[in-house]
Amino acid sequence: MGQGRDCVAVVTGASRGAGKGIAKALAAAGATVYITGRSWRAGEAALPGSLTETAEEIAAAGGVAVPVRCDHGRDEEVEALFARVRADHGRLDILVNNATSLHDALTATGPFWEKPLDLTTIWDVGMRSHYTASWYAAPLLLANGEGLVVNTSSFGGRIYMHGPAYGAGKAAVDKMAHDMAVDFRPHNVAVISLWMGLLLTERTRQVFDAEPDKYADLVATAEHPEFSGRVIAALWADPGRMAHSGTVCIGAELGEAYGVTDITGGQPPSHRAFFGPPTSFGDAVVE
């Protein structure tokens, strides 16, 4: 992947959705990818997808994936994950913090007090789990001498999207990327938050398939999950990646800058014109 040696990556929440697509793309680019999730085999969750299936698809395409069952709400399981990476490789190149708890009622309409309080689980598996994984990964990234941490996020960190629980969770991981970048900068480890577009995941496909005419226009602008992985691979291959550290990046714009296309060959739209620019933060550092 442009670094002259084997790349070791961890992608959390890779049973399905964005994490699965990112893992497949990084593996296709030559990385050994550790994939995590709670669904080990098909049928263990309401949505399609499992770690075993992700690993099998990567292997069938000629890549290397190491599935590790991990509940990112349990710190001891996260610690064990990175202990395994340390035992196997002694270092880590890329960490993609993607595991996120998305409640079934997330997209329900109405004010937040009419929705389940459990929507706040995104602050545990999402906000807190991103921090925890980065904390355990840090010694491996430092041992590597360089690295990349990516928090997957969305325009929901800037606008009203699915209500305050979701918005607070996404805004938090955006700010977390900025602040972690300050600490990691002397060690040549870049940290970004990546705003993905509307993704063609198992969850969204179920919604689209139920009412295809209603969502035809949305489907036309949607990204395949592998696109985000291709963008991350391109960023890792860029010797100037530190210039992006501490920023919130729109995946479609970063992809266009690197000449990265979706698996269909097209270039996903940015959505900046409708949702606005990425969040920016101040330069002052108070220790």
Rank of each mutant, 00 (worst) to 15 (best):
G169K: 13
P212E: 06
E211D: 10
V260K: 01
I192T: 10
I192L: 14
D174H: 15
L235S: 03
A257I: 01
V189M: 04
E253K: 09
G240K: 08
L200D: 09
G169T: 11
A216F: 08
V219H: 08
E202T: 00
S245E: 14
S245L: 11
R203A: 14
L199V: 12
H178M: 09
A190T: 08
L198V: 14
D213L: 06
A252P: 07
E256R: 13
H178C: 11
I232H: 06
Y258R: 04
T221R: 10
G255P: 15
A190D: 02
I232M: 04
F208V: 06
M180N: 08
H244P: 00
L235E: 09
D179V: 15
P212F: 08
P225E: 12
T261I: 06
I250D: 04
P225Y: 12
D238N: 06
L200A: 11
L200Y: 04
W236S: 01
K170P: 09
I263L: 11
A177P: 15
V248S: 14
A210T: 02
D262I: 10
E253A: 12
E256M: 02
G229P: 10
I250T: 03
D183G: 14
Q206K: 02
K170M: 09
Y215I: 01
A168D: 01
H244D: 10
T261H: 12
R230M: 03
A168R: 00
R185S: 14
Q267N: 03
L198M: 13
H187F: 10
P268D: 00
M196I: 11
D209S: 11
T201A: 03
T261R: 08
H178K: 13
V219A: 12
M196C: 10
G169N: 15
E211K: 01
T204R: 01
T201N: 01
I263H: 01
L235Y: 05
G246M: 14
V231N: 00
F208Q: 00
V207T: 11
L235C: 07
Q267Y: 05
P212H: 02
T221V: 14
E226F: 08
M176K: 12
S193K: 02
A181K: 13
G266C: 02
A222P: 03
T221P: 06
D179Q: 15
G229A: 05
S228T: 10
E211G: 03
A234S: 13
L198A: 11
C249S: 02
G259M: 05
I192N: 08
T247S: 14
A257F: 02
G255C: 15
H187N: 09
G246S: 12
A234D: 09
V231Y: 04
S270A: 10
S245D: 14
E223C: 11
A172F: 10
A177K: 15
V231D: 00
